[in-house]
């Protein structure tokens, strides 16, 4: 229980050199140690995606990664997605399309979208739905989220749905 690991993790551009308990999850390190509470916890089975962060640029559920495993890695949380006082295009699209209600799934959902659009800049509606399959939202019915992503996907067919 008292086992610790030395880690060097770059979080939102800032290098953190610290010791973490071996059993500490990345989500707990971000929230409890760094106070980056924008990353949420919605389940304990890696199902909901509320804890999604970018790990070396790729969307990862931070409840499934030990902090110690992120040694040498780069993490972007919702707080680091856009400069303070501004919104990333994905965040703007979410606001414009009313793609959030309670907002609890939103940070993870936004980062999942950022990762999806990096991988598939011309994502179709089917790509978008599949790409967000691991992020649950209980409020919006997903339709506005899909609309928001579609508005950013270059060349995507603008069919309804």
């Amino acid at each position: 229980m008292s086992l610790t690991a030395r880690v060097r993790i770059r979080v939102n551009g800032e290098l953190q050199v610290t010791a973490v308990p071996a059993r500490q999850l990345l989500v707990s390190y971000l929230r409890d140690d760094l106070g980056l509470t924008g990353t949420k916890i919605g389940c304990d089975t890696t199902s909901c995606g509320a804890c999604t962060v970018l790990l070396n640029g790729e969307a990862v559920k931070s409840c499934t990664v030990f902090a110690a495993q992120a040694d040498g890695d780069e993490v972007i949380t919702i707080e680091g997605l856009a400069p303070a006082g501004s919104l990333h295009p994905v965040q703007r699209a979410f606001r414009d399309e009313h793609a959030l209600q309670c907002g609890y799934c939103t940070p993870g959902m936004v980062l999942a979208v950022v990762s999806l659009l990096r991988e598939l800049p011309e994502a179709s509606d089917a790509d978008i739905r599949r790409g967000l399959d691991g992020n649950l939202c209980r409020c919006t019915g997903y339709t506005p989220i899909i609309r928001a992503v579609r508005s950013l996907a270059a060349g995507a067919a603008h069919d309804p749905g």
Partner: peptide
């Protein structure tokens, strides 16, 4: 009208129960 609530919720600045210390 676009929601005034959204800016803080979208940037992780919203404060839910477990975010309060």
């Amino acid at each position: 009208v676009r929601r005034v609530e959204d800016a803080e919720l979208l940037t992780g600045a919203g404060r839910y129960l477990d975010d309060i210390r």
